[in-house]
Amino acid sequence: MANTAPAHPTHAGGAAGETRRDFLLDMTVATGVVGGVMMVWPLIHSMNPAADTLSLSTTEFSVAGIAEGMGITVLWRGKPVFARHRTAAEIEAAQKVNLAELRDPAKDADRVKKDHENMLVLVGVCTHLGCIPLGMKPTDPRGEFGGWFCPCHGSEYDTSGRIRRGPAPANLEVPPYSFVNDTTVRVG
């Protein structure tokens, strides 16, 4: 249909009733194009998350068994979520940082739940290009700031999951979560 419009004027001639014909032509072409475009939306939208995908957005896990300094990784919405039981020294280091030095300034207190400051819950996806940073296994490198180190392009995160060095633009994301009770976390 789109091809018909530009070629038309050569054939419109100079006959009487031209104005009305052109109006009719414009209307018809416009209606056809709008109809086609309206059909595109269902096609595109079918690629968005389906209802079952959207509904599976909560994950519950227990943090009771995590020893100090250790962490676990759970799956939420197809992505890893880190839960690390921070040591007192790590918490102190995170709180002491001068916010002015940070690329993406955020207070440590805003990145944890009150009365659960020892438990840091993060989406374990590097904000650079989506790799999973190292730092969950005892043998992993954690970078200079004691948090996480991304092996892909060398981004380093601190013990609050904030970006400190490397190409990543932002801190590790804190997912929406809550403590169902003292030992159970629900993400999503």
Binding site: R21, L24, L25, T28, T31
Partner: peptide, 20 residues
């Protein structure tokens, strides 16, 4: 309803062009 609108428009356009 939309398809009907398009069809009616196309019909009149067709008549007009073919009148030539």
């Amino acid at each position: 309803i939309f398809t009907l609108l398009f069809t009616v428009l196309a019909y009149f356009l067709k008549r007009r062009i073919w009148a030539r």
